[in-house]
Every structure is written in structure tokens, then in C-alpha cells.
């Protein structure tokens, strides 16, 4: 096309230059919501690469699958003619319930927390993005609060989703769904309450350890190491045959046993049958561990600023 054939210009492109922002500024509340949602997304790998999604789901999926398996076992016994709500009416085996489900999934959720917790706090310090947060309208309390709440939400969901799957699954599996719901409704506040306490403790503990290093994998290994060592230690001490009460006290050091057996037994009302130790002791121990973790995290970040 020659220059003679070029169409006549009908418009002009203007660079309107820099435009000042005159819209709404939502301040700290927007900052907090953003930090919370960003943490939840980061924790589950949403909006990130395949590997970031794979790890949390790899650890989380078995917990939900366990709930399904428990429901399937119950439904199977119903199908072959047993009433799962009448446990003393000739069932050939003790069917696992919510307490047993908690015992099975607690370890998996601890491992899930060991992967997700460091992901939420370590990269900010490693990449030094954290300095950019604190020069904006959020405080250290907002920052840590948002990260803490995000992990708490994820762990709470990881704790109660298998129970919900099991509860609802069995509802569909049994012949008398309404009767089953009436007989078992009390399990709902029990597993939710246990899930809340477990999530508060695990979140605080995980964030505290993750605060000590800016390397994600090192934090994950330390968390898993502490859980393992704390769980093996009571077994080693039991070689010396301490009294039952002393053994139970030492067993509280085992984080797996504490979160998968001792605390759930309080919520499912079986503590008195299983343990001699005064119920106030494990409760006080959990409060101490959780409070200590939160205080350690706070002091660490204060010192780093």
C-alpha cells in the first residue's frame, strides 16, 4: 500500500499521564482481609504452581478419605444386616467411631501443618517482603493475626471435614437415617470442639517453630522432628517403670498422643475411663503449650523488627 492509499486518521491516542487515586481507602481492615485470604490461598497452593498445590492436597486428601472409609465400613455392616447404632446388638467387631477417626487423622493433620505453617511465614522473612508490610497500615498484631487465623481455618477444616464426611456418609448408609441423626447429633459439637482446640494448639505451635528460621524446609523438618522426638521420649522413659500417674504425666509430652488421644477423650467424654490423671492437668498443659508458643512467636518478631 502506498502512502496515497493510507486511510485518513480518525483518532488520536493520548497519554493521560499519571492519575491520582481518588477512590476509597479501606485502611487496616482491607489490609487484614487481604493478608488472611492471601495466606489461605498460599497455604493451599491456590494461584501457585503445581508442586505448591500438590503437597498440601497430598497430605490432606487421606484425612477426608479416612472419613469416607469409616462411613463405608459402617454402611457395609448395615447392608449385611447389622444395626451400627446398636453396638451391643451382636456386631462382630467394635466399629470405629469419631474418637478413633480423630486418633487416625491427627497425625496426618500435624504433618499437613508442618508443611503449610512454614509456607505462610518463612518466605516473607527470607525474601524480606515483611519490611514492605510493616510500612503499610498494618501492625505486627495484624500481620501475625492474619497468618495465624489462616492456618487455624485450614487446620480446623482439615480436622472437621473427615468427621463431617463420616457423619453424613453414615447417614446415607444406614437404614434409619433420622434415627441415626437423633442418636449421634451430640458427636457434632464434640468433633467441632475438639477440632477447634486441636487447631488452636497446632497453629500456635507450628507458627512459633516456623518463626525461628526463614527456610521453609528446615522449619518443616524441625516441626516433624519435635513431634517425633516428643512422642518417642515417653516410650523411652517408660523403660524405667514409673508409676501410672507419672507415666501419664510423661505421656503428655508426646504431642501425637496428646492431640490424638488425650484431648479428644475429654471432648468425647471417655477421659475418666482411660486416664487416672486429673483432667485439669492436660487442659492446663495444652493452655501452657499454646500460650508459650504464641508468646515465643510475638517476642521473636518484636526482636526482629
Amino acid at each position: 500500500m502506498t502512502s496515497d492509499q493510507q486511510p485518513e486518521r480518525t483518532g488520536t491516542v493520548f497519554d493521560i499521564g499519571y492519575q491520582s487515586y481518588a477512590g476509597e481507602r479501606e485502611g487496616r481492615s482491607r489490609a487484614w482481609k487481604t493478608m488472611l485470604w492471601d495466606s489461605v490461598k498460599n497455604g493451599m497452593g491456590i494461584g501457585r504452581g503445581g508442586w505448591a498445590k500438590f503437597l498440601p492436597w497430598l497430605v490432606l486428601s487421606p484425612t477426608i478419605a479416612t472419613g469416607l472409609v469409616f462411613a463405608a465400613i459402617g454402611a457395609f455392616f448395615e447392608q449385611i444386616g447389622f444395626d451400627v447404632d446398636e453396638t451391643e446388638n451382636g456386631l462382630p467387631v467394635d466399629l470405629p467411631g469419631h474418637l478413633e477417626l480423630t486418633a487416625v487423622i491427627s497425625f496426618m493433620i500435624l504433618i499437613f501443618a508442618a508443611f503449610v505453617g512454614p509456607e505462610l511465614v518463612c518466605p516473607d522473612r527470607r525474601n524480606r517482603v515483611i519490611h514492605l508490610y510493616f510500612v503499610r497500615p498494618i501492625t505486627l498484631f495484624d500481620y501475625l493475626g492474619a497468618r495465624w487465623c489462616a492456618l487455624f481455618i485450614l487446620l480446623l477444616l482439615a480436622s472437621i471435614l473427615p468427621h463431617i464426611t463420616y457423619w453424613i456418609g453414615l447417614l446415607f448408609g444406614v437404614a434409619d437415617s433420622l434415627g441415626h441423626a437423633q442418636d449421634n447429633w451430640l458427636n457434632i459439637p464434640r468433633f467441632i470442639g475438639n477440632g477447634i482446640v486441636f487447631a488452636i494448639f497446632t497453629t500456635s505451635f507450628t507458627i512459633a517453630i516456623s518463626s525461628m528460621t526463614d527456610r521453609r524446609m528446615i522449619a518443616t523438618l524441625i516441626i516433624i522432628g519435635v513431634i517425633m522426638i516428643a512422642s518417642i521420649a515417653p516410650g523411652i522413659i517408660s523403660i524405667f517403670n514409673p508409676s501410672d500417674t507419672v507415666a501419664e504425666l510423661i505421656n503428655l509430652v508426646g504431642l501425637i498422643d496428646l492431640s490424638s488421644n488425650v484431648v479428644p477423650s475429654i471432648f468425647f467424654d471417655t477421659y475418666a475411663e482411660a486416664y487416672d490423671l486429673n483432667i485439669a492437668v492436660p487442659i492446663a498443659w495444652m493452655i501452657l503449650l499454646t500460650g508459650g508458643s504464641i508468646a515465643a512467636t510475638w517476642r521473636f518478631y518484636q526482636a526482629q523488627r
Binding site: Y21, G23, E24, R30, R136
Partner: peptide, 13 residues
Amino acid sequence: THMAEVSGIPPSR
């Protein structure tokens, strides 16, 4: 975008 939101700007903007 994330930093703008942390500064209090609504996500839509």
C-alpha cells in the same frame, strides 16, 4: 496488586 490491597485499596481498583 497484593501490595495495593495491603495498603487499603479495594480489590476492584
